[in-house]
Structure formats: structure tokens, C-alpha cells
Amino acid sequence: MSIVITGASGKLGTLILNQLLHKVPMNQIIACVRSRETAMPYEELGIMVRYCDYDRPDSLESAFAGASKLLFISSSHPDDTIRMRQHTHVIEAAKKSKVEQLLYTSFAFPEKSSIPLPHLHLATEHAIQATGIPYTFLRNALYIDFIGTLDLKTAIERGELRVPPGDWLFNSIPRQDIALAAAAVLAEPGHLNKTYELTASSPWSFSDLTAAMAELARRPVSLQQDATIQNWIYGFLRKIDASSTSNDLEQLIGRPSTSLKESIKPFISL
């Protein structure tokens, strides 16, 4: 069996590959990267590295050759038109290379969103299904990283987190949880033509967030709703389904998703 991972030197790809090393022999893993320099640690371990550039269709077919499973990590390009073209290149190459199973990192509950990004992921899913290749869609929740825009350190110093009015609920989790789930699917047989919503086991609120902040900081932190708050992230959050949850991740990794308290530790400097 050969497991090919695109974007293997990126944040998510690195986490997935490192988890996979605990589950399968390294000679079954192929790391596909755009820059070989970023993959030097893999080569030093003895992992096969191949050049793979979504903008270079000629690089993809040879990169995917012999893949029993291809993990296609979605493009991070900010232009959706370019991103969709890149995705098309990958899908076409996967079909030409006769990939046996195509796994794709999608977006959680894209049908319920009203912005282009989740719809692009949905369009990519449909394109993959049209190839006839057995697929697995790993629909990732919005990463917990979004709280980095909320300046939690300042909120702790002030003893107050201010947010716009609303009944805010979130399904966000750390990339590490998503990596664990992806590695489990890659290492196990099956999961053919399945879609997994990889979210928190239960939704959390800004009240939960301030409680976790207070516990970590060992000082009171209150929550205040303020209609004058101006931050692009809230407009984005209102246009996606950031609150629906599933037990798919919990079943794949054999435990609940990481607690909110543990998840926010990297974003609080104490």
C-alpha cells in the first residue's frame, strides 16, 4: 500500500504525516511537496518525497503514481478561481494515475454556508464524485486558530472579552484533532465513499471561552456584548455554519475532541 499526501510540508500535512508514522511503516508513505527543501526532514527519515505543484499539472501524475490512497489537502490560495483550477488539476491527475482512493480535506457543513469558500469545497467534492474514484471527504471544522483574531491576551489583561451581540456557538477544534482523524482513516481499510464532519463533540460559546480563559489565567474574565465591535471575523462567522457538530471525529480518534481549555493554551501568553 502506498499513501500519498499532498501539501505534506504544510501545517496540516505535517501533523497528519507525523501521526501516520505511528500507524504504518514509513516505506508506505509518500510526501508530495512543492519545495523539496521543506521536505528535508522527511528525506532524512527515509520517507519518499516527490515534487507536486497544483499549478503544474505535469508534476501531478507522476507524483500520484502507484497511490493506493491519495490525501488531497485543499489549496490555500486566496483566489477562488485559481484554487478551483488547482483542484481540477489534482482531480484530473488522480484519475489519470488510477488512484485507488481519493481523500479530500473539505469544509464542515458547506451546504449551510453563504460564502464562496465552502461552496468551492462542495464543488470540489462533486468533481471528485464525478470521476468514479472511491472517495472519502474529511470535512474540517473552522480551525480553533480563528480565536487568534480576538486578542485573548489583551482581554485577560483587561479582565473582559468584548464581542458583538448574538447567540454565538462554535464547533472549532485544533488541527491536531483533525490530523488524528485523517491519519486513522488513511491507516485503516474501508471508509470508501464516506463523508465525515470533523468538528468538536459539542458546541462551545463565548461564555465557555471566557470561563476557560479565566481558569488558565487564574483571574476573572467577564464577557460583554458590544454592538460597536468591528472585526472582520464576526462577519465571516455569521456566513458559515460554525456551530453544527457531529460525533464523526470522536468515533474516528476514539475519544472526544480536545477540550476548549487545552485548545486555547497556545493562544494565551501568560
Rank of each mutant, 00 (worst) to 15 (best):
R162H: 11
A155R: 04
D145H: 06
L180E: 14
T131Y: 02
G132W: 00
Q129G: 00
P189R: 11
G132T: 00
A179E: 01
L138Q: 14
K96S: 15
I173K: 05
E125N: 01
F170M: 10
T154L: 11
R158P: 05
E125T: 04
N140F: 14
F137N: 07
V99K: 09
T149P: 01
I147L: 13
L138M: 15
S114N: 15
L198D: 04
K95P: 08
F170Q: 07
I128E: 01
I91T: 02
I173M: 05
L120C: 08
T131Q: 00
Y196Q: 06
W168I: 04
L120G: 04
K98F: 10
L138I: 12
A183V: 10
V185Y: 06
E100P: 01
E188A: 15
F107W: 14
P174V: 07
L198Q: 10
F146V: 11
E160I: 04
L117F: 06
E157Q: 11
A200Q: 02
I156K: 04
A141G: 07
A187K: 09
S106T: 06
L138K: 12
T199Q: 03
A200N: 09
P116L: 10
A181T: 06
A155C: 14
I144H: 10
G132L: 00
S106P: 04
P189H: 14
L102W: 08
R162C: 07
V99L: 06
V185F: 13
R139E: 14
T124Q: 03
F109E: 06
L120Y: 08
L180Y: 03
V185R: 08
I156P: 11
T124E: 03
T136Y: 05
K194N: 14
L103C: 05
E100W: 03
S172R: 09
L103A: 09
A179C: 04
W168M: 06
S113M: 10
G148H: 07
Q176V: 07
K98D: 11
T131S: 01
E100R: 11
Q129S: 01
L186V: 13
E100F: 01
L117Y: 09
F107V: 15
W168R: 11
L186S: 12
Y196N: 04
A127Q: 03
S202A: 12
E157L: 07
